[in-house]
Design a protein around this nucleic acid. Structure first.
Lengths: 216, 216
DNA sequence: ACACGGTGTTACTAACGGTAACACCAGTCT
DNA sequence: AGACTGGTGTTACCGTTAGTAACACCGTGT
């Protein structure tokens, strides 16, 4: 009967796809984001055309690969955001969870931040597909955070819009500071978290000018 | 006399270099950051090896190109930061200046955000040169902002460290929100500026929970 | 016996960054 | 004059990459 065979083949294909993804994962973990398709195919014990049959092109493979890691990170962050305690503690827990993740697995982080070229959506107009220069991971984090902010905070009118701006803004802040911190290690993670939370808590607005200067 | 000839040749070389950079600029403005060395050479009316003699490699050319634009942007932002008025007005003026710049010249923006591979500093240790995933432009903006914050604000002990975290964090927030905004255009620039300033002014901390929800 | 759909291969293309080897053309030194 | 030097420019190549066409094999259903 052909239907059950179809199912068998389909689930076999999916199993194969997972195997290939795991092989790709190993290579990317070893060689970084510039791992070549040849290298990945070799690690999987096959040759290039099979990869292309399964994933279309390099971006397809990388997107599939990124989604797994992104999902995992999102779970971690969501549980951090549900930490019991005051809002400040939740925010600090979330910042710390993100930073701990990128600190623990720098190669994965490096891969996830790679600009995966973003599937070249059909160029409506003559648009220079501008505005896609943050990694898909950060886009997703921003949207998720926006959703949570809009769900849980009372922001008055325009709350939808405000929440999205804040979501992407906070994620960008976290990312940029984390990236810089990871490269220079100028302080402990806990201190970085505290500094960032201070920033979000309006300490920039509250700080006093240095006497005699031009002021800020 | 050979010294004056040396000078002639040197200044001729620099003029040539500027010409090449301008040609490269035209190509990048037309083709985006993935402009090939061949295309740039053709636009300049010459062939590849000359480009390589002048700039070493592709990153050399791109760094030289990026520096000009980055310098120009920095001047704009510095004058915005010296706007007369209250701190909030200065911050809003600076955010707006950045957003106006990326809005006005998206191709330049797109080029500047391209990860120029960052001159592969001598790999001390076996380091995976992690923590270099923000464009050089953003690094520089972050450092400059940190300097200004440290100079003008009274932040108590640790002010140096705090200022740098904030500098990079704020720049990252601005960039991520700006990139998202440029892609989706969900609101006016002025409104985006206000939302971001609200975030920096601690409205996240001050907002009330939505009644009945899990809270944030 | 035969077509079909899947897996796998080899061998190729086109483009890229980068380089070696050579040609030309000014002035300079002997 | 003739050799040397330092710059500009070229053609023709290398190695690697993403991506593809064409073919071979094998189990299954008709």
């Amino acid at each position: 009967m052909q239907t059950s065979q179809r199912l068998d083949q389909q689930q076999a294909a999916e199993r194969r796809r997972r195997e290939l993804l795991e092989a790709a994962d190993r290579v990317v973990l070893r060689d970084g984001p510039e791992a070549s398709m040849n290298a990945i195919a070799a690690e999987a014990g096959i040759t290039k055309p099979i990869l292309y049959r399964h994933f279309g092109d390099k971006n397809g493979l990388y997107r599939a690969l990124a989604q797994r890691h992104t999902d995992a990170l999102l779970v971690t962050l969501r549980t951090a955001l549900d930490t019991p305690g005051a809002r400040r503690e939740r925010v600090e827990a979330t910042l710390d969870a993100y930073l701990a993740a990128i600190e623990a697995r720098p190669q994965v982080y490096r891969f996830l931040m790679h600009p995966t070229e973003a599937e070249t959506a059909p160029d409506s107009e003559k648009g220079f597909d501008v505005g896609r220069h943050t990694a898909p991971l950060l886009r997703r984090l921003g949207e998720e955070l926006a959703k949570i902010i809009a769900e849980r905070l009372d922001l008055g009118p325009n709350s939808e819009e405000l929440a999205r701006v804040w979501g992407h803004g906070i994620v960008g802040m976290m990312h940029a500071a984390g990236d810089w911190w990871l490269g220079e290690r100028p302080c402990s993670r806990a201190q970085l978290v505290r500094h960032l939370a201070d920033l979000l808590w309006g300490r920039l607005a509250a700080a006093g000018d240095i006497p005699g200067g031009p002021g800020l």
